[in-house]
Structures are given as C-alpha cells and as structure tokens.
C-alpha cells in the first residue's frame, strides 16, 4: 500500500506547489500508516528528486521518455495508472492545476476510482473517506465521500502549506509501456515564458481593474509586483478592453486563484470577480468608492484613488524592505 503523489518538474526543478503536494500526501500517509511515493515525469537530477524526501516521500519514481515532453492527457494517464498498480497505491494526489485537471479525470474513469477535484482539506474522516471541497464558486463547502478502493484527490494550491517531514528517499527509474492509442494529440509549437511567477501558484498577486484607467498606467502595478515577488493579474473588463492579456484575467470565467495575499487595485469586486479570488488568505482592496462590494470580502482596505494610493504603497513597501 502507498500514497502516490504526482509532482510536476519545471525545467528540471520542483516548485513549492510540488512540495506542498508531497506534504499533503505525507499527512494522509501518516494518518493511514503507509508511505508516500512521488512520481515525476521528465528530465531531472537525482539531487533535485531527493528534495521530495524532505517533505516525506520515501520513494521517488522518475520517468524520462522523450515522447512525454509535451503533455498528452491519455499517455500521462497511462504512466500514472502503471505507477498506481506498481506501488499498490490506494490514494493518488495531484495538483488542481493545468496538468492535474487534464489527467485526474481520465485516471478516475480508467481506474473507476472516485475523484475529489479541487480539495481544500485533508480527509475529515477515513472511514468513510470524506474530503471537503469548495462548491458554487466558494459559496458553500461540500463533503465528498469516496466509496471506491482507490481514491483520487486534486488539491487546490496554497490550501495545505509546506510541512517538512524528512525521510531518506529511494530513487527509482521507471520505463512505462504505451499503446498507440495513448498519443492522440500532437503539439506543433510551444510559446512559454520561463522563470516568471505563475499566476495560479503565486503567493502574492497584484491585480488591477478599471480604476487603473488605461494600459499606460500599469507600470506601478508591475513595479509593486516586482518588489513583492508577485504575479500580476486583472479584472475581466481590463482583459476585455485589451489593456492586459486575457491570460491575466482572474474571476469566474478566467483563472481561479488562491494566493496568500491578493491586492485588488481599482477593482469594484463584482461577484464574478470575487468567485475567482475568494480563496485568497488575505485580500487588500484599494477603491475610491467606499460602497464598492470588494470591501465586503477584503480584510484590509484603503478608500481612495488608486492612482494616488499606489505610488505611496510602492514607497511603503520599499521602506519596509529596506528595514527588513
């Protein structure tokens, strides 16, 4: 028996999100008296792999097959399916991100294993196996009971945190088998920025809305984000106006994020926007309208013109960093 956790490596490195998943899996392993096996696809050094041991993975399986360079949902599902069988996994944990959302449903259907998507807690009970997830865009929490022998969980980023639990980890290479049916898709070209903080995984997000008045005013948003090591995002009208790329749109039909700190600058806080950011741990709002709905979900707020407040905010962060 084991808990299998699929962790992504980006350009050969594990990121915080991967270690959060291992921490989460280690907690379930501890509760159920079993061990954690981490699975990684793609080229990675032994040294980097062993870092998963810091968070409780006693075995790390690496699959390095050129055909898996680009994500094919069915092929990746086949790899994880074989690892589940090899390690007699009873629980499979993935991140509720781009890759996890692509693979976990296929794996669930293939193994006839119940899926809890976008979980926000460790199991609240193991018998029956029940986990909480957000529903109705955060307006209610549902307790999902899984009745199948194998359980699959995708975990929302930043919902468990990092917890060190050092163990020595065995590193194993694995050569999976494929069927031709596995590679139904082909990537023709990739356009990717490397090294930038990912919006969906960032600890801090600085977001601008219509109150910013125009794309030419985004300099201070970028500056504040740079100072804080944050990602930038925007509200829907900003993306629709073409002031910013739609990949930055957070909200109901855009990206759903859960950073530790979210700055809503010149964003009124329509319910569709709040649906995308309500899982943030702390929300700071700056808006000139004291009645703006964003203040009903914010933890801290400043009532004022964002164009005037933002430079002061930048100065205050600079002063804070100088003294830190």
């Amino acid at each position: 028996m084991s808990i299998l956790v699929y962790i992504e490596n980006r350009e050969g490195k594990f990121h915080k999100g991967a270690f959060e998943l291992v921490s989460y899996a280690a907690r379930i392993a501890k509760d159920t008296n079993t061990t954690v096996v981490a699975l990684s696809i793609g080229e990675i050094t032994k040294e980097e792999m062993s870092r998963a041991g810091t968070y409780g993975a006693s075995k790390v399986i690496t699959v390095n097959v050129p055909r898996l360079t680009a994500l094919d949902n069915a092929a990746y599902t086949s790899v994880i399916e074989q690892a589940v069988s090899l390690e007699a996994a009873t629980v499979v944990v993935l991140a509720s991100g781009f890759t996890g959302k692509a693979i976990a449903p296929r794996l669930s259907a293939r193994l006839k294993a119940g899926l809890v998507p976008a979980a926000v807690t460790v199991p609240v009970s193991y018998n029956p196996f029940v986990i909480r997830k957000k529903t109705f865009n955060g307006k209610a929490l549902a307790e999902i009971q899984v009745n199948t022998a194998i359980k699959i969980i995708t975990l929302n980023p930043n919902s468990f945190g990092l917890h060190e639990m050092p163990v020595s980890s065995e590193i194993v290479e694995f050569q999976p088998a494929f069927s031709e049916r596995d590679f139904g898709t082909k990537v023709l070209s990739t356009d990717k920025q490397v090294g930038k903080v990912l919006l969906t995984e960032a600890d801090i997000v600085v977001s601008g809305g219509r109150g910013m008045k125009g794309p030419e005013n985004w300099g201070p948003i970028e500056e504040l984000a740079g100072l804080l090591g944050a990602a930038t995002s925007c509200s829907r009208p900003v993306a629709d106006e073409g002031w910013r790329s739609h990949t930055e749109h957070v909200g109901q039909t855009g990206k759903v994020i859960a950073p530790i700190l979210y700055f809503a600058l010149g964003i009124s806080g329509a319910i569709q926007h709040v649906a995308g950011v309500s899982s943030s741990k702390v929300i700071v709002a700056v808006n000139k309208d004291p009645e703006a709905p964003i203040f009903s979900v914010a933890d801290y707020g400043i009532v004022g013109d964002v164009q005037k407040v933002l430079p002061e905010l930048i100065d205050a962060v600079k002063a804070f960093k100088a003294n830190a």
């Binding site: 809890v116 929490l141 009903s296 400043i302």
Partner: peptide
Amino acid sequence: LTLISGFKLPAPKAACHIVDGENVK
C-alpha cells in the same frame, strides 16, 4: 463513484479593516 454527504457554509468574513489613505505605511 462518489457522493456528497453534506454541505457547510463558509464562516462569515470579519469586517474589512479600513486603513487611512494618508497612512499607507
């Protein structure tokens, strides 16, 4: 494969702490 055994409403959020715009620090 799964069922919903129950729902909970999230805890109500505490009121927003308004900071004076003259004192961003």
